[in-house]
Amino acid sequence: MPIHEKSLIRPENLVTHDHLVIDGMDVSGHWSTFIEGRSITDYNENLQEEIAALPGGENIHRCWQCGSCTNACTVNAINPEFNPRYWIYLIRLGMEDELLRDKDIIWQCVSCNKCTYACPRDVAPEGVMKATAHWLELKGHTPKSPSTIFDEGFSAQVFQRGKIEDGLVLRNFLQDTGQPLRQPWLETMVLGLIRRFPVFYLIRLGLSTVFRPKTRGWGRARAAINEYVHEVEATNRKALGLDAKGAE
């Protein structure tokens, strides 16, 4: 749905007084219904700079609001509320409250990059969506998404040992997302493995749950990666005016 076909009246802006008398005239109930003004008076002047400071958002200032991104968008075709052009515009003008109203759908970007190819100005809207989702998370507006939780658990193991142990990745993910460890699909898979896998592999799998697999001589790589991750995290947080905090 193009912006101009969006309803301009939000339900929370409709006000009705159950009991209201004006100049002796009883206008209780729907007689007193009015719509609150839509004027914005509060702007976050730095919003564009904050998004531009995060990876992917660098080119946001090039947007001239043509709408090619929204027209090309895969998600928009399914959910008309998903409107990259609209959000880019809000960010550029600093309408933070307006942006936050859509915080629960901005992360739905599937990164198909059709907008990236459609954009005549090299804004890279897909990157802007990524940066915006990241911004929402860093500012604490949205909880971590399941995929972020998975990515963090996965990365933590790689950073630590250079390798992952599938069982641990899975267990941590289920724990961190508050899901029971006993999943029917998981049991089916494990039983299937036990039945079909050569014994040698099963022993290796079992051993690796005790002795975690590790890349030889990983220490230096680990130090370098941790340093880089800390650095990026600190830069991002500083750009958003947040306290310094180490990588998780």
Partner: peptide, 10 residues
């Protein structure tokens, strides 16, 4: 006129 919104900007 792009987002059809009244504005009042300092």
């Amino acid at each position: 006129t792009l987002v059809k919104r009244p504005i009042s900007i300092p």
